[in-house]
Amino acid sequence: GSCGKKAIPLAVLGAEVTIFDISERNMRYALETAEAAGVSVDFVLGDVLEPDMEKYGGFFDVVFMEGGILHYFHDIGKFMEVMHSFLRPGGRMIASDFHPFQKVMDIMDFEQPVTDYFSTEIVRGEMAHARFYPEEIRKQFPMCEYRKYTMSEIINAVIESGFLLKRFDEYPAWTDKRYPGEFTILAVRDANVQNATGE
């Protein structure tokens, strides 16, 4: 959910939106911006991997994430299981993220560490947008720990959590169109398929 930069426009278009994020500052920004836009959004402050499933299990028509979040979760299987559990049968997950090619080449100029494509190590680096700030502000951002996945790890986590994979698309990097920069996955919670937890 972050600061609501996608959730608030969806609310303006008429969607009922719930944002999950761990940052209190993001919550404050999102709620103030939503109020200024004349819409309301729900904001759940906390770890999305520990949601209130009595309230949110099978609750949503769509779960949506974009702009580089998967690498913040060190257990992508658990993350995808939670996303699957959020959805009603027939609900859709849309995941748009940075391409795992970023592991071996900083093609998007994020100034983040690169590594072996098949590495499973946790790497430490800045948030992707930190480079846009003056140096004195940039130094104030906390460092993050990333688990950068291969494409097969991402796709298999989607499938193994019980989703029916409907579409997978890759897009060129905006810095050099010869290389992959982003991807989008569309998956559905099939009423006839169970995930690893039997849901």
Rank of each mutant, 00 (worst) to 15 (best):
S2G: 14
K5S: 11
A7T: 01
A7M: 10
I8K: 03
P9T: 05
V12M: 05
L13Q: 10
V17H: 04
V17G: 08
F20N: 07
D21V: 00
N26S: 05
M27A: 03
L31M: 02
E32M: 05
E32W: 04
A34N: 01
A37M: 10
V39R: 08
D42I: 13
Y56C: 15
Y56S: 15
V62L: 13
V62I: 12
V63Y: 06
M65G: 07
H74Q: 14
I76D: 03
I76Q: 08
I76P: 08
G77A: 02
F79E: 11
E81W: 13
E81Y: 13
M83A: 09
H84I: 12
F86N: 09
L87K: 01
M93F: 14
I94E: 04
A95P: 11
A95D: 14
S96Y: 00
H99T: 10
H99P: 06
F101M: 14
Q102V: 12
I107C: 03
I107V: 07
E111H: 07
E111K: 07
T115A: 11
T115Y: 03
T115G: 09
F118M: 07
S119Y: 04
I122G: 01
R124Y: 10
E126N: 05
R131F: 02
Y133L: 08
P134K: 00
P134A: 02
E136G: 03
R138K: 01
Q140V: 05
F141N: 00
P142C: 04
R147K: 13
R147I: 15
K148L: 06
S152C: 11
I154H: 07
N156V: 09
E160A: 14
E160R: 14
F168S: 02
E170T: 03
W174H: 06
P180S: 07
P180W: 03
G181D: 02
T184N: 02
A187N: 04
A187C: 14
Q194G: 13
A196Q: 08
